[in-house]
Structures are given as C-alpha cells and as structure tokens.
C-alpha cells in the first residue's frame, strides 16, 4: 500500500490571527496565519486545518481573507472549520481557496446540509467534524464547541454522515482534548471500523508514540495535532520519521 498516512497540524484562528501560542524559532510574527502555514509547509505537513474560533459574523469575513492569503502562498490542501452554517458559508470558503470545509454543529442541526453540500461541491470537500465524549460504554456527540450534549451516539452518527455524503470525518475526543494523554483509541477504532470513509483522529496528542497508536491501533487515516507542533517540541518531519521507523508509510 502506497497511500501515506497524513499528519495535519491544526491552527486556531481568532479575528484573523493564529492563537494558542505558536512558538517557532525564528518566526517573525507567530500570529500571522500565512507565516505559520508556510513554516508547516516547509516541514512537510500533509495538509493544514484552520479552525475559526471567532464567534462574531463580522470576523467571518476576516477568515475569508486569511484563507485567500494562505491559499496564495501554500500549495497543500487546506481545511477550514468553525462556524460554517450554510451553503453560502461553504461556497465562500471554497471560493477563497479552501479545499475542504469542516461542518460540526450545523450538521447536527440540519443533516441535509451535508447532503446538499456534497451533491453540489462534491463529497471530497465536505468534512464532518464530531466532538465525542465517553458516556458509559459508548460516546455521545456534543455541539457548539463541546458545550451542548445531543444524546446522539457517535458511531451511529458517523455512519449517518457517511450516508449523507460526508467525504471524511474529523473525530475529536473531548475527554482527551488538551490532556496530552493520547487519542481515545477505543473511540477512534470504533468509528474508523464503522465507516468506509477516512477518519482523522484528534484530541490528546502529547508525544510521537500517540500518533503511531492513532494510526495502528485506532485505524485512523490521518492524525491531527496542535500543541506538540506549535511549541516546536517536534517538527512534522521528525514526527514522520518516527512513524516511518514504526512501519507506517508517510510522505517524507
């Protein structure tokens, strides 16, 4: 098998600026999305994900400009998520140069949006983002940045989203997010085994071994991480080299 497993750094953007302290040696402006994106591009990131954490709709326009600026400089796939509500939002982001949009709360509010968008733009650009939290022996979907429980079971939701036309699933474990204890492997493998489309594991990466288990044990097609790359602990290239020594195919 020659298809490489992907490493995707995730950048939080607020009001057009990268936040959550990206710390690179020698970077002039760590808040500039273009500069940060370029740095990850040089490190051989497979894709980039921008998460717009801005609440106001005014700043949404700023996000469009961010996407435009990054897409003009960095020639790897870009995913944009956060606050995508309707067809107009999707169109705006794709038109600005995003390759994929990730839809979270809006997919729960209106699952038909996923169908409509995948029929119009193609399922390859529709990522459904799921925030899941352990609840007994299964996992529950939360919306609104993890604030609102929905009572929906994560595995059946993932299957429903495949039927609706999603091209990929971005799966975040709320229990692990920010802990640096590693992915929720049980969750990752339950969802990944249940669907035919690629799953990106997210939430909890604290060391390189976690990336390996997300792929090998979790069955994920890609791994998303933020802090281990942002703080310069490891470069993407180092992470790939490590994964390669563990027998995982990566694009080096």
């Amino acid at each position: 098998m020659a298809l490489a497993k992907r490493i995707i750094p995730c950048l939080d953007v607020d009001g057009g600026r990268v936040v959550k302290g990206v710390q690179f040696v020698g970077i002039v402006d760590a808040g500039d999305p273009v500069e940060v994106a370029k740095r990850y591009d040089q490190q051989k990131a497979d894709e980039l994900t921008f998460l717009d954490i801005t609440a106001s709709s005014d700043a949404r326009k700023i996000m469009v400009d961010v996407v435009k600026a990054v897409a003009g400089e960095v020639f790897i796939p870009l995913t944009v998520g956060g606050g995508i509500r309707d067809m107009q939002d999707i169109h705006q982001m794709l038109h600005a140069g995003a390759d994929k949009v990730s839809i979270n709360t809006a997919a729960v509010d209106n699952p038909y949006l996923v169908t409509e968008a995948s029929m119009y733009f193609g399922s390859q650009c529709i990522v459904v983002a799921m925030d899941a939290k352990k609840n007994g022996s299964s996992w529950e979907i939360y919306t609104h940045g993890g604030r609102n429980p929905t009572g929906i079971d994560a595995v059946s939701w993932a299957q429903k989203m495949v039927d609706a036309g999603a091209g990929e699933i971005l799966l975040t474990s709320m229990d692990r997010d920010g802990t640096r204890d590693g992915f929720d492997i049980e969750l990752t493998s339950a969802v990944s085994d249940a669907v035919s489309i690629p799953v990106i594991a997210s939430g909890g990466v604290g060391k390189l071994e976690h990336l390996v288990s997300g792929i090998v044990e979790g069955g994920a097609s890609a791994v998303l991480a933020a802090s281990i790359f942002h703080f310069g602990e490891f470069t993407i290239e180092q992470a790939k080299q490590y994964m390669e020594t563990r027998g995982i195919e990566v694009n080096l």
């Binding site: 098998m1 020659a2 298809l3 490489a4 497993k5 992907r6 497979d46 399922s123 390859q124 091209g167 990929e168 990944s192 085994d193 035919s196 489309i197 690629p198 799953v199 069955g219 097609s221 890609a222 694009n251």
Partner: peptide, 20 residues
C-alpha cells in the same frame, strides 16, 4: 470498491492523500 481490504486494512473511499 467499498469495503476492500489490503493486508487486513480497510481501503477507505475516497482515496485521499499522498500516493506514489
């Protein structure tokens, strides 16, 4: 084809990512 396996690994569709 959907649900095709290679070396016990499920080949996901779309074929998405970096390939030779």
């Amino acid at each position: 084809p959907i649900n095709q396996r290679l070396n016990n690994e499920l080949l996901k569709v779309p074929h998405m990512g970096w390939n030779r």
